[in-house]
């Protein structure tokens, strides 16, 4: 019980610290903006640890953060192999193929007004569907290994990417297009000098949405069959063995992979679309 009391005390202390920081004189500085969520995160983890220990919650319901960390540290080779299988082979290759194909398709669609008017509603419709459901079909077609996971990812990222890219390529004003006409610019000149750069914020929006979709697709596809390696495989088998510390360690890997992937794309975006109002400092 004393541990539960300690948890309450930690919570109160952490919150009080954040109240002081957030309402203090330096609330707008970058250091405080970083510190406050970090303190909050650390507080949550500490409270979690104390409460689980204090109430003696069984492992099969919720392991403590320290157990998860220990499992993480001792299982690094397994986690790494799962990461390579699911993220590098499945998600990344599918992401590259899917986004690349969608971009090429967007360029093709963009040349024809008819195609655009026909494909955009269809694409919008498909983007809202539960596409992960195609996983069993694709696993059947492409086998249990990463190829089927990459295929699921391709299908998942294709349409969100396509609609963003097509919308982006339209994102020029009549004036800008007229200007290109006064220069007697050809189609590809107008494309590379005006429309592609103007589309970049939209394209990156699609790329960012797709990072999460890629991981979801790769992990969920493994629930329908996989070799004995992979994040989704590990999660489903560890759940079956009630090894929840392993499940949490794997979720930690997924979270790290997801946010780093997203962060990397966002960083590239910063470099490419530095001129966009949302990116200017």
């Amino acid at each position: 019980m004393s541990l539960v009391a300690l948890a309450l005390a930690i919570w109160a202390a952490g919150w009080a610290m954040n109240v002081r920081l957030a309402t203090g004189a330096h609330a707008e500085t970058a250091a405080v903006r970083l510190a406050v969520p970090l303190i909050f995160g650390v507080t949550v983890v500490l409270v979690w640890e104390c409460v689980v220990r204090g109430l003696q919650v069984p492992l099969v319901i919720l392991p403590t953060p320290s157990m998860i960390a220990a499992r993480f540290a001792t299982s690094l080779p397994i986690l790494w192999a799962d990461f390579v299988q699911t993220f590098v082979k499945g998600a990344l290759s599918g992401y590259a193929i899917g986004c690349g194909a969608a971009l090429l398709a967007a360029v093709a669609v963009d040349r024809s007004d008819f195609l655009r008017r026909g494909l955009l509603p269809v694409g919008n419709f498909i983007a809202a569907l539960p596409i992960v459901g195609t996983a069993p079909i694709l696993v059947m077609w492409f086998g249990f290994d990463w190829h089927s996971k990459a295929a699921v990812v391709v299908v998942m990222v294709f349409f969100p990417m396509l609609i963003n890219a097509v919308a982006g390529l339209r994102e020029t004003t009549a004036m800008q297009r007229d200007l290109m006409r006064t220069y007697a610019a050809g189609y590809w000149q107008g494309f590379f000098k005006l429309r592609l750069p103007a589309a970049m914020p939209f394209i990156f929006n699609g790329l960012k949405i797709s990072t999460t979709l890629a991981l979801i697709g790769a992990i969920v596809a493994e629930f329908f069959g996989s070799p004995t390696v992979g994040m989704g495989f590990r999660i489903s088998t560890s759940v079956g063995q009630l090894a929840l510390d392993m499940v949490w360690a794997e979720i930690l890997v997924a979270a790290l992979a997801g946010s780093l992937f997203y962060g990397a794309v966002a960083l590239i975006e910063r470099g490419v679309t530095f001129w966009h109002p949302s990116q200017r400092k």
């Binding site: 004036m175 007229d178 200007l179 007697a184 530095f274």
Partner: peptide, 19 residues
């Protein structure tokens, strides 16, 4: 004349490319 780039056109807005 347009194809020979005979004129420069200035619009009401500057329309400079931000990138």
């Amino acid at each position: 004349a347009r194809k020979q780039r005979a004129y420069g056109y200035v619009f009401q807005a500057a329309g400079l490319y931000p990138w």
